[in-house]
Write a protein that binds this DNA or RNA. Structure first.
Lengths: 229, 229
DNA sequence: AATAACCTTACTTTTACCTTACTTTTACAT
DNA sequence: ATGTAAAAGTAAGGTAAAAGTAAGGTTATT
């Protein structure tokens, strides 16, 4: 997840960047409003943390412009208590959330997670997926094979989600480890293989001769919604 | 639409009532804070207009109590400029919107419409909900199991409301924290689990083998109106 | 003062899943 | 072809993480 922070107060900036980096976010920072706007528009970010009082261009104007050019980019405003708040509350500047200084890091993190969670309609595309006699519902965490319910663990759902997002492509074990397990690299164990084994047992007609979750020797695995290839 | 105005300044009150009545709202008014609170709690209203400075009990306290007992009732605060504003903005009193005096009637009307629009859907849909032998009345904050009244706390109602709005879907602990507790994040305690425990004790036939409020390991909880799935 | 609501802490139970170890298959070099 | 090394398949047991649960403490409410 790539975050951009536009904030001119060095000490706040430092604290924010350290904490967010520690949480695993990729963080870019910039102190000037106009340059910040440019950067936000020209590069990809998943979230923007935006101070209201800035040199160059104020946060209010930046937010307005962002929402006009890149409505999909979520923005969290950082404001001082009191009168600044009014503007934000009173005027419809389109920010997704805001925090009043001083704020606690846990609260900031919670709001970031919440905003990111909300701004994910891709999740909805994937709410349901079917192949062969298998039906997967990622919202309900429900799976059926031939209309009979099958229990999949949340990790197994997670793997299937990744497969579906990369349907037809070869995905390396390492990709799966990163996407499903996080970066906690487990060197060279059969963890992934075992999960695949379980999935095949549950979803394939003949687990030992899989038609959809096939392995590509020397490379990884490949998911095909249609049997064949 | 029934509105309640709690405001002690007679001239303001008169103006408000006339204008709102003219717009087609049913308007009740009351000048004392404590009595206003009582009235708001004991009768049905769709919206509360609440002055901050009041005899009997100040608006801040009233709002807090309302939001605790009747979280679904929208509140618009009326405040004087300046320092009063800070309190509202700074403290999390849970008001849905606020206006600073003097305000224009068109603005007031716009904000009333906006607040009603926002708060309408769930409030009405969810007036009542039944599943198994459980009946929940979110307007009266009443719950019965096998037609026997059961006491649910407002937090518990709030959780059930969220569950019902997301029936069948897996909701993460964090979703619940955000929706029910707000962002006063409690890092990683068993608060949510304990609330679930309490709910199951009250609503499930066999609390240790829940049929409706089920947990999804590694993901969160899921509410099913029908047992099974 | 008593009651209730609620959060935390700490302990117990459950189970998903990770590791280990062994077997089978495949690619390819001889 | 055929041997062999690497890759993938597979089973099973131990374990740590997640959920269940109870009890105590704090604060608000009567």
């Amino acid at each position: 997840m790539d975050l951009l922070i536009i904030e001119d107060d060095i000490s706040i900036l430092r604290g924010l960047k350290d904490n967010l980096t520690f949480e695993g976010y990729q963080v870019q920072t910039i102190g000037d409003g106009l340059e910040g706007l440019k950067m936000a528009l020209e590069h990809h970010f998943d979230l923007l943390l935006l101070d209201l009082m800035l040199p160059g261009m104020n946060g209010y104007e930046i937010c307005r412009r962002i929402k006009k050019e890149k409505p999909g980019l979520p923005v969290i405003m950082l404001t001082a208590r009191g009168s600044e708040m009014d503007k934000i509350a009173g005027l419809d500047i389109g920010a997704d959330d805001y925090l009043t200084k001083p704020f606690s890091i846990p609260e900031l993190l919670a709001r970031i997670r919440a905003v990111l969670r909300r701004s994910k309609p891709e999740y909805d595309h994937l709410a349901e997926f079917s192949f062969a006699n298998v039906k997967l519902d990622f919202k309900k965490f429900q799976a059926t094979v031939n209309d009979t319910e099958i229990k999949l663990s949340s990790k197994e759902f997670s793997i299937m989600k990744y497969f579906i997002e990369h349907e037809g492509e070869v995905v390396q074990r390492e990709d799966l480890l990163e996407a499903v397990w996080g970066y906690d690299i487990m060197p060279d164990t059969r963890t992934v293989d075992n999960s695949i084994l379980d999935l095949r047992k549950k979803l394939e007609e003949i687990p030992s001769d899989p038609k959809h979750i096939v392995s590509v020797r020397g490379a990884g695995y490949k998911f095909n919604a249609q049997a064949g290839n």
